[in-house]
């Protein structure tokens, strides 16, 4: 639960009293667990300022910011980072152009964790594969561009990456969560493929029905029932394939997960 209590923020660049602008005046806001909040306001109404105060980029002049009862008002940005995943407005800030996709994700992967001088910073294959799966969900082809520098990617791709980095939970706690995600990612491609083919076929059926209406002669009639039968078969086929794949993936994922957790629990990352 996030609470903003009586926060006031005044901006005064020149030190002149007349130039002072009150961005936030005695703001009070509470966000409960699991809530999805949208802040709407016109230009200059203080939206970004509120966000900055929550994440620590700016300090309030008065008031408090509490997270689950803990006072985080005085904490600096990097000290609060473990509680927040921030998606910056500007994708250029959210990701680091000189680093590769993989390096960016490794940064966010360790958010909140202590960065050691003795541990190798490049993740081993289990985590790399995890990253790939996470990237594949966006269907932007990013999973094949892990070692490419982020600077060559488009703004949209970088923003997708920022979103992913913000939502990275480096604690893989729930087994079920893990392999559900894994399964969804694996079967996701199949599902997309299936949808595509099904839509295609459905369109062909539609077209055929139209043609039949206008053609008239039986000789030129396209066998719609044949097409419908193949559609049914296609759907059943895919359902079967996906189910099969899901089973295989689930078992794969469980193995995967156990190994990864073991490694991270015992803190021995092999190169």
């Amino acid at each position: 639960m996030l609470t903003i209590k009586n926060v006031t923020k005044v901006f005064n660049m020149t030190g002149n009293k007349d130039d002072a602008r009150k961005a936030l005046d005695n703001l009070n806001l509470t966000v409960n667990d699991g809530e999805f909040v949208t802040i709407i306001g016109s230009n200059g109404s203080g939206k970004t300022t509120t966000l900055n105060i929550i994440t620590g980029e700016k300090m309030p002049d008065s008031g408090k910011v509490l997270l689950s009862g803990m006072d985080i008002t005085k904490l600096k940005v990097h000290q609060r980072a473990k509680y927040f995943g921030r998606v910056f407005q500007d994708p250029m800030i959210g990701t680091s152009a000189e680093m590769s996709c993989l390096e960016n994700m490794e940064l966010s992967f360790r958010r909140g964790k202590h960065r050691s001088m003795l541990k190798w910073g490049f993740s081993d294959n289990t985590v790399k594969l995890l990253f790939q799966k996470q990237l594949a969900e966006f269907d932007l082809g990013l999973e094949n561009r892990l070692s490419q520098k982020v600077g060559v990617m488009s703004g949209g791709q970088r923003q997708a990456l920022t979103l992913l980095m913000a939502s990275t939970d480096c604690r893989i706690d729930t087994e079920k969560e893990f392999y559900t995600m894994h399964v969804n990612v694996e079967t996701g491609a199949l599902r997309v493929q299936a949808e595509r083919e099904i839509n295609e076929l459905q369109n062909r059926i539609k077209e055929a029905k139209k043609v039949n209406k206008t053609a008239g002669t039986q000789a030129n009639e396209i066998n719609v029932s044949e097409l419908e039968a193949s559609l049914k078969k296609l759907k059943a086929d895919y359902k079967g394939k996906i189910k099969e794949k899901a089973e295989v993936c689930k078992n794969e994922a469980i193995e995967f997960y156990r190994k990864a957790v073991e490694q991270y629990k015992t803190n021995s990352i092999t190169r």
């Binding site: 994440t55 980029e57 600096k76 940005v77 990097h78 000290q79 980072a81 473990k82 927040f84 921030r86 910056f88 800030i93 959210g94 990701t95 680091s96 152009a97 000189e98 680093m99 390096e103 490794e106 940064l107 966010s108 360790r110 958010r111 909140g112 964790k113 960065r115 050691s116 001088m117 003795l118 541990k119 190798w120 910073g121 490049f122 980095m165």
Partner: peptide
């Protein structure tokens, strides 16, 4: 190539993002 070494490189490349990722 260590975790901290990469944190330093990140600081040089994008200090604001680095702070948001928990780097002092």
């Amino acid at each position: 190539g260590t975790e901290y070494g990469m944190a330093i490189r990140a600081t040089g490349m994008n200090p604001q993002m680095s702070r948001a990722q928990g780097i002092n």
